[in-house]
Structures are given as structure tokens and as C-alpha cells.
Computed example of a mutant assay.
Amino acid sequence: MTGAGRAAGTRRLAVAGAAVLLLALGLVALTVVRPSSASSGTASTAARSAPADGSVDAGFARDMSVHHQQAVEMSFIVRDRTDDEDVRRLAYDIINTQANQRGMMLGWLEAWGLPKSSAVPPMRWMGHTFTPHDGALMPGMATDTQLDALRAAKGEQAEILYLRLMTAHHTAGAEMARAAGDAATTEVIRNLATGMARGQRSEIALMADMLRERGAKP
């Protein structure tokens, strides 16, 4: 890959990273401002406004928290397997953004008085059925075998595997977010999910460019 190609990739990553950071900051501000009305009201008012345990809102918050947890895990792995600045910067952005979003979703579940986990199969809130296999609990999630391969890889091999796994991860995550953005009843989930889908689609395009720069396909 030429120096110009790397430089172009760095510029694209910087722009995408700034956009994701601004989105995350906006969502944090939203959670600080919007829930204040609930905290200032009575407990009974908060209970009436909380979504049901079997709602799209609760299902999305639980499933996407698990989905995000693996994205953060994969990003920590690749950060230690390559010295490439672009890939490490992308991994850092994903760690920070998705850990922040996961914290918000778990916080909302707690505020709603709902459990953070459920015996209901994943994706039921989307009307889907998914059979977990080899550690992959939902669509797009890497299997244990794939995670072991990522841990064993180094340098460009690790970069390519990470970008491919994260592309699949984001593709499924963006579809989940789109569904929640359309069907959720709470404004906080609709806003988060809509922004999440937009941000992940942007990173999918960025990762496709990064793979091409490395002579690989998604």
C-alpha cells in the first residue's frame, strides 16, 4: 500500500472518528437532559413510563449490550496485535463509543426496574429466532473459533481478520438498531438506535476502504 493510500485512510478515519465522537457526546447529553423529567417526578410516574419487560426497548437494550460487549472485546484484542495507527485508532473509537452506549442501555434497564438479562431467546423482540453456536449468541457475532484466530494473528493478518469480523458485526448491529429505531416506544431508545445505525454504516464503509488498502475483500 502506498504512503498516499495510508494518508488517505488516516484522514477518512479521523473524519469518521470525529463524527462518531460527536454522536456519542450528543447521546450522552440527551441522556443527561431527557431523563431529568423522570427523576424529578414520582416513582409511580416513572413506572408508568417504563417499557414492558417484553418490549422492543428492553429486548434491544439487553441484546445490543451483549453485542457491543463483544465488539469492545475484539477491539481490545486487535489493539494489542498490530502497530498500525489506523486500525488501532478505529479500535479505540469502537471501544469508547460502544462501551459508552452499553453503559447507557444497562442504565436505562436499571432505571426502568427491568432485569439486565432475560431467559427469552435473543432477537425475539425482532421476531427472529437465532440458535447460538460456538459462542456466537446473535447474528454478526464472532464465534469462539474466530476470536481464537484473532488472538493468534499478528500484524496485517490481525488487521484484516479484525476488519472482516467487525464488518459482519456492524452489519448485523446496524440492522438491529434500524429495527429498534422504527419500533421502540421510548424516545431514548429510538434516538440511540437511529444514531447507532448511522454510525455503524459509516464505519462499515470505512472498513471496506481499509480492507482494500490491504489488498483484501470484506
Rank of each mutant, 00 (worst) to 15 (best):
T186Y: 10
A208R: 15
G181F: 05
A180P: 01
T194K: 07
M196L: 14
E203F: 10
D209G: 13
A208S: 09
E213T: 14
D182S: 09
E175N: 14
A184Y: 03
E187Q: 14
A197W: 00
G195I: 00
T171E: 11
G215Q: 14
E187C: 06
R164F: 03
G181H: 00
L165Y: 11
S202D: 08
R190I: 04
Q200H: 02
S202Y: 08
T186A: 08
E156G: 05
R164S: 07
R214Y: 00
M196S: 13
E156V: 12
A184C: 12
G199S: 14
A179N: 08
R198S: 13
Q200M: 08
T194A: 07
D182C: 11
A174W: 00
E175D: 10
R201S: 11
Y162I: 02
L163W: 00
E203P: 06
I189H: 11
E203R: 10
V188N: 01
I204C: 06
A180Y: 03
S202Q: 11
A208I: 12
I204V: 15
S202P: 07
R178W: 09
L161D: 05
A179M: 08
T186I: 02
Q157E: 13
A168T: 13
M176L: 07
E175L: 11
L163C: 02
A205E: 10
D182Q: 13
A193M: 04
R198H: 09
L165I: 09
R214F: 00
A183N: 13
I160W: 12
A184W: 01
N191A: 11
R198D: 08
A205M: 13
I160N: 15
A158N: 04
T171V: 13
A184G: 05
L163I: 03
N191G: 15
M166R: 12
E156P: 02
E213G: 05
A172W: 04
D209H: 08
E159M: 06
L163D: 00
T186V: 08
E213V: 01
